[in-house]
């Protein structure tokens, strides 16, 4: 068999199927490329740039680059991990990420990436933006202080829930998450606590009320194993099915 097309990722052969991106093929083959705004269930859009890799010598976002154009991909290099560290630092400095009081702490993707990449400080000047919390909804809290603008909730609402609960407004550093209501309040939207968009937030912006801090420190998701390991465990493996 093995006539499937493939590319080299850090020297190891990664097979792919037509239509797959470099990220999809890598994860399916059990190879981790750090990522933040990519989620296997939604259309990739490549905004966080954490997954930047050298594809045939050119720097590209692995999550949006078609595997078909790749022959050689470099990801685990000091240069690229340096870049990733700086991007994580930028996100920490941009928002108000006060981990000690955040109920997402321990289950937060941004935090887990920081751990895995060895980010010890945001380094840059903290911007300390003023972002009010929206507690209007009886079951869901929105704490925009922690928003990293990954648009996962926007995509989940659109692609899975068939709604437009979340969207983006403003531009540049003023870009921010909004909800689909003239009042600007979540309670005035058609959001349901069971929506995919509510569950998908990688950080602590969209939170179900009254369920926080249920898991003790030490037993939370990324207390147990690093995100690089967990991302692989979660990755869809369509190739394996085809194998047998």
């Amino acid at each position: 068999m093995n006539q499937r097309p493939s590319f080299l990722l850090d020297g190891a052969e990664v097979p792919f199927e037509p239509g797959q991106t470099v990220m999809q093929a890598a994860l399916a083959a059990g190879r981790y490329i750090p990522h933040l705004c990519y989620h296997p269930e939604f259309t990739p859009h490549g905004s966080c740039k954490l997954c930047t890799a050298r594809v045939n010598g050119r720097l590209m976002a692995a999550c949006t680059t078609p595997a078909g154009i790749a022959t050689e991909v470099e990801s685990e290099t000091e240069e690229l991990n340096d870049l990733r560290r700086t991007l994580v630092q930028m996100l920490f400095a941009e928002g108000n990420h006060f981990c000690p009081s955040c109920e997402k702490s321990g289950n937060c993707v941004l935090q887990a990436l920081g751990y895995d990449l060895g980010v010890m400080t945001a380094g840059f000047r903290h911007l300390f933006p003023d972002r009010p919390v929206d507690a209007s909804h009886p079951e869901i809290l929105l704490d925009f202080n922690r928003c990293i603008l990954c648009e996962l909730c926007v995509r989940a609402a659109r692609e899975v829930d068939g709604k437009h609960v979340f969207s983006l407004a403003g531009r540049g550093l003023g870009k921010h998450l909004i909800v689909n209501a003239e009042s600007g309040r979540l309670v005035d939207t058609d959001v349901k606590v069971t929506d995919k968009a509510v569950e998908v937030c990688p950080v602590g912006v969209i939170l179900r009320k009254r369920v926080g801090f249920a898991t003790p420190i030490g037993a939370r998701r990324y207390d147990q194993s690093p995100i690089s390991a967990q991302a692989l465990a979660d990755a869809p493996r369509p190739l394996e099915r085809n194998h047998d």
């Binding site: 990420h97 981990c99 935090q111 920081g114 751990y115 060895g118 010890m120 420190i217 690093p226």
Partner: peptide
């Protein structure tokens, strides 16, 4: 520090 020792909370 490495996994388990580095944390922000």
């Amino acid at each position: 520090l490495g996994h388990g020792l580095i944390h922000y909370d």
